[in-house]
Design a binder for these strands. Sequence first.
DNA 1: AAAAAATGCGACTATTTATTCGCGTTTGTC
DNA 2: GACAAACGCGAATAAATAGTCGCATTTTTT
Lengths: 218, 218
Amino acid sequence: MNRSLNRKTKIALEPRKQPRQERSSKVVDRILDAALILTREQGTGTPTTLAIAQRAGLSVGSVYQYYPNKEAILLDLARRWLGAFPEVIEKRTRVPRPTTRAAFQREVRELFIDTSRLYLENASLMPVIEAITGNPDLRPIQNEYDEQIIALYAAWLRHVNPALQEDVANRLGVVMMEVGHVCRLVGLKKDRRTFDLLEDDVETMWIALVTPYLDLNE
Amino acid sequence: MNRSLNRKTKIALEPRKQPRQERSSKVVDRILDAALILTREQGTGTPTTLAIAQRAGLSVGSVYQYYPNKEAILLDLARRWLGAFPEVIEKRTRVPRPTTRAAFQREVRELFIDTSRLYLENASLMPVIEAITGNPDLRPIQNEYDEQIIALYAAWLRHVNPALQEDVANRLGVVMMEVGHVCRLVGLKKDRRTFDLLEDDVETMWIALVTPYLDLNE
DNA sequence: AAAAAATGCGACTATTTATTCGCGTTTGTC
DNA sequence: GACAAACGCGAATAAATAGTCGCATTTTTT
């Protein structure tokens, strides 16, 4: 009877109920704010329900009224980011296919700028994203989103070059996502200037990575 | 009285004592083996001391005889990897400085192959490295090693181009490390063929990243 | 303004995991 | 083979965190 087998098969992660009165909407906001602040403060690991409640000026009971556990709170925060990502990439597949190298590089740059902005605009959420990455219960959910994002990067690549094989597109998608993610997390922890320099680095790497697979008739 | 302030300032992480009899050396080996296997099985999170003891066919008491807590066990495992990394990079700074673009690319390739091998040879330890990354108590220690590795990459870059500014070298070092690490972790989770393809991608990106900063008189 | 519904509370219970400690056993030494 | 040191054990204790529940308060409904 292995310990890793009798783990709770699945824990509830959805919010328990919608607030119906205005005061309780504010309570939910306070819970989310407190969770965000504490996650940022701790830097690593996830805050306890009690800590969240206290920071929000609430009792534990009130927290459990709306969320079944702390994971659900973090996830609620994170979805704002995780949910926004896919559509940004997808939008970039809805443009005419570039045919010259210059046009292609412009397209990379567009995709690149759009995703970059997403990180900048959600900078305050990044500690939550990192906390989720390190949380056994939440990691699987992030993985689902990651799969989705990889698939969209791959779709973008195949939009740019329809002849590209699917497995190759997928591999490149993984690299684009991972490289972009890790560099931007580093960048956001430093100053804006460093972030911008790192962005240039990412763009350079993306272009170098993808160009050989483009089959552009120059 | 902030929760994040009254965290245990520092937890003991060093092994408690050296085994003096042969049987106890084997006990320590069994503890480490069990910890490794469990970490790999769980995929995420760190195993409990009890779980480690049971898996090793020991009692908790025996585990605590040699390690003050589970973090110390994981760290003991991880140091085998973390400790090996620096010297591999350093070795690459002890060669004649390349002066042509071709020679430079050979140097990148050497560094690249050496670090790659390190990942392949320690593939079984990677789950431990990932667990450490997600563990609040161990993360700071990994960060120290990371700093060291970044500094060595930076030193390598300045060996290749002594005119390179220190902050630029450092930034590029961060990117080399992060990009290499994340791609290799992905690669090791897939098959060998994919790993090799990803390696090519990393090499491509490294060269693209670094070349503009080399000031080679071609 | 009375009744009903929703909300908020926090003491209490449950559960999980860490860690110690004294005792019986094995090993090494003289 | 006797004595001491090292070892291994696991029940017991400690500590942290999760999660519940009945009651008090506030808001909405009629």
